[in-house]
Each structure stands twice: as structure tokens, then as C-alpha cells.
Design a protein around this nucleic acid. Structure first.
Lengths: 235, 235
DNA sequence: TTGTGTGAACGATTTCACAGCC
DNA sequence: GGCTGTGAAATCGTTCACACAA
């Protein structure tokens, strides 16, 4: 491993010093690929095989994994379950994340009902809206709460992540309030640029943006092949 | 400008030779920011101001824009409307893109109803599903079609982009069919890794992945600030 | 012998700093 | 005087190629 002090032979896996954003993004891909192998009953994979289904080169994969520690066996490969465990820890998925969805429109409801969030570890603990017509409705296992009580709900549910599923016009105000309530990790589906203070991590997901990027490639006839998770951000 | 031949004094704006993926991703951010300025009645912006709201450095912004051509005025700045026009063209947004949504579950319906796709230029021309319970339902301005007729529908509607909004288990098969039907630009919301042949551009959007990346940052206490659109992909 | 882990080479992107034009 | 456009420098990320361990 790169820079282990020596006092801690088995690092928590949380990443010693900070992983490059591009690496973090790829780790989530590997994690998913490992899930696939696990489901197929595969117990060991080579960097070659894992890289193949992940859409990266085996060199990149080995470099990435080596940043977390030496979890492979030379001449053999990686143990699927073991590696999965380490990746989960490195990504912080062994803790509980309590997610509140702000905005219970079409998208917010769809996200709330989505249930199994692809990976465990994320619990949707609240779904809020400002529309009296919507407040009180049942969506999945949740009842839509009043966004007016956002701070109280966040406190009670110990929310530590927020998903913004609102129109552009309402997003910044809601974002500010979420931040003021102490949430430092935000995923926004609102089709607008949001400003957050230092110390808050904001990620943005937006169909319009994605379609525009597709349009660019389509327009030039050319095209890349598979593109996994777009790489990380400047921060 | 970098490499204009000289015979074409006003390039179509479509990008002469191929823009780096990171640049394309940022162009969409600038485009949105310009929309904001336009709505506020602002007619000129400096690279400093535009960069500020876009969450990038002014040097990066100028470098990016200079790859399209010299659309600014030294000592003055950029004209908002003019620059917006050029960015739209560079991204290929002046053509019509006909988008089919495959999968009319919670997410597919939410996307279909989303209507104004943030930016014009993208028309949702079809919404398909395999579930007889869902086929025929009205969603927004569309009626859910039978995915069994996918090829015919795509031909009739001249679909040239597809959005996959299906469970992981159905995604690869649907993706293959979409590709076989001649669509070369695909946006997938399915929480799974998809393989596409060379020549097809696939982008992936996935809440689980995004939450995992947030978890990583949250877990390390540290955090980046604003992160606009995550940068481009290896392809 | 196989396949990981990793320094070193390479390539891409961002930042710097300033020349050039308004 | 102010701000864009851009070479050059610095930084970051990927690929190569091989030492090393099983």
C-alpha cells in the first residue's frame, strides 16, 4: 500500500488520504460488477475479467484497487466477496445513510417508490413537499410530510443526506434550507445550477444535460463506446 | 482560433475536430448559466462572472470557449444571447432529437411527464412498456405503447435517442434491441452495467451510484464544494 | 507460470501569466 | 484600463512494462 504508517495493519478501508474523484466513481462500478459476479456464484476474478465488465482497462483497475490496499493475490486474482467488502468500506457504505427526498412531484415519488436503492445502506426516511394536495399522501412506505417542518423532520429522522427533486425555481431556496439544517451531502435532480457553501458536497443529475451530451456525440457521427459513470468533479 | 482552415470563416459551431469530453460536459453548464443571465435581462457577461456561477475557473472557461471560436470581445466580455446560440450549435441542439423512453414504470412515467426537458430540442415521441396493465395508459401527452413493437415504433417516430428506464434485469436485452433498431445514443437509468457495441454512445445515470459517491465524501468528513456536472467519460 | 502491485512514461487537462485587441 | 485568447508550465490521470509473490 502506498503510504501506510505501519501502526494500522488493516486500514478501515475508508481511504487513507483521499481518493481521486475519478477513482471513487469507478469504485462504484466495480462494486456493482462484483455484485454481478457474486450473483453468478463466481468466487474469484482477475483484474482482466473485472475490468472487462466494468468497461475500464485492467491496468486502471489494478491501480485503483491498489490505492485501497493489497486485496488481491498475485497469480490468482481477487476474491469477490472479500473485495466487495473492502470496496463497501472504502466508500463508506457500512454506515447507515438516512436520506430525505425533498419534493414529492412525479420524480420525487418515483424515487421514493424505487425502494431498493441499488445498494443497501441508504434508507429513505422522509419525503417532503409544500403542496397541501400532496402532503399526507402515502407513497411507498412513506407519508409525504410538510416541507414547512423540514428542520424538525430532519432532526427527528437524523437525516444526513438529501435528494432534491423539485423544479428549478424552487431548488436553490430548498437547497439553502437543507444546508442550514445541517445536511452536507446533497443530490440534486433539479435542472438548474445550485450554489452551496464550502464543506457541502453537491452532486447533480439531470436528464437535459445528459441528452445534450448525447446530442453532441450523435451530431458528430463519431461516438465513444461504453461510458461508465462520468468521472468526478473539480472539487 | 486554433486550427481553422481558412475557407470557412464562420464554422458551424459544431466543433471542428472533436471536443474533449470534459469540455462538452462544461458547455452544458455554461449554456444553462447563460439561460439564467438571459432570464435576468443581462446582455453581456465576463468570463469571470460566467465562470463564477458555473463553478469553474475563469481560465478554464475561456479555454473552453476559445475551442469553439472567438465569440468574446476583448476588454468587454461575451454577449449572452450570441454565446448561447454558438453553444447550442456546438452541442448539436439546433437539430431535432426524437427521444423514446423505454420502460413506463414509476421513473419512465415521471420522465415522460417531465415535459419541458430543461432545454428545447428534445421531443419525447414514444413511451413503451411490456406490461399489459400499463400499455395503453395515457401519460402526459403520450399513450404507452407496446414494447413488442419497438422497432416499428422507432421507425415510425424516427426515434434517434432512447432513454432506458427499466429494472436492471431487463436493461441489457432492451438495450440490445434499441441498438439493433438503429439508435446510437442511449441514456440509461437502469442500475446496472450495460455493454454496447462500438459506435453507440451510452450514458448512465443512477441514483445509487451518486449516493455512494456522496457517502464516500461524507464519510471522510472532508468534502469538495460545488460539483457541477461530473466530467466526461474515457471514450 | 500466472496475474497482482507499482514505478516510470505518456497523455490529457487545468492553471498561469501575459500578449493583443477593444 | 480591462478582459479575452492562448502559449507554456504545472498538475492530474492513464497506460506500459516488469518485478515480485503465490
Amino acid at each position: 500500500m502506498a503510504r501506510a504508517g505501519g501502526t494500522d495493519p488493516a486500514p478501515t478501508g475508508a481511504g487513507e488520504r483521499g481518493l481521486p474523484p475519478a477513482v471513487v466513481a469507478r469504485l462504484t462500478v466495480y462494486l456493482r460488477a462484483l455484485g454481478g459476479f457474486l450473483a453468478d456464484g463466481v468466487e474469484r476474478v482477475s483484474s482482466e475479467a473485472l475490468a472487462e465488465v466494468s468497461g475500464v482497462s485492467s491496468a486502471t483497475l489494478r491501480k485503483d484497487l491498489s490505492q485501497l490496499g493489497s486485496y488481491g493475490t498475485r497469480g490468482v486474482g481477487y476474491e469477490v466477496e472479500n473485495l466487495r467488502q473492502h470496496l463497501s468500506e472504502a466508500l463508506g457504505l457500512t454506515r447507515d445513510w438516512r436520506v430525505a427526498i425533498v419534493g414529492a412531484g412525479n420524480l420525487g415519488r418515483a424515487l421514493a417508490r424505487y425502494g431498493g436503492f441499488g445498494t443497501r445502506g441508504f434508507d429513505v426516511v422522509a419525503l417532503l413537499d409544500t403542496d397541501p394536495q400532496i402532503i399526507g399522501n402515502e407513497v411507498g412506505w412513506l407519508r409525504v410530510g410538510d416541507a414547512a417542518n423540514l428542520e424538525a423532520v430532519f432532526r427527528r429522522t437524523r437525516t444526513n443526506m438529501a435528494v432534491l427533486a423539485l423544479p428549478a425555481s424552487a431548488a436553490q431556496a430548498a437547497c439553502d434550507r437543507v444546508v442550514a439544517a445541517g445536511v452536507r451531502s446533497i443530490l440534486s435532480f433539479a435542472p438548474t445550477i445550485l450554489q452551496v457553501p464550502e464543506g457541502v458536497t453537491l452532486r447533480k443529475v439531470d436528464m437535459a444535460t445528459e441528452l445534450q451530451i448525447l446530442a453532441y456525440h450523435a451530431q458528430r457521427g463519431e461516438s465513444g463506446g461504453q461510458s461508465g459513470e462520468p468521472a468526478g468533479d473539480p472539487a
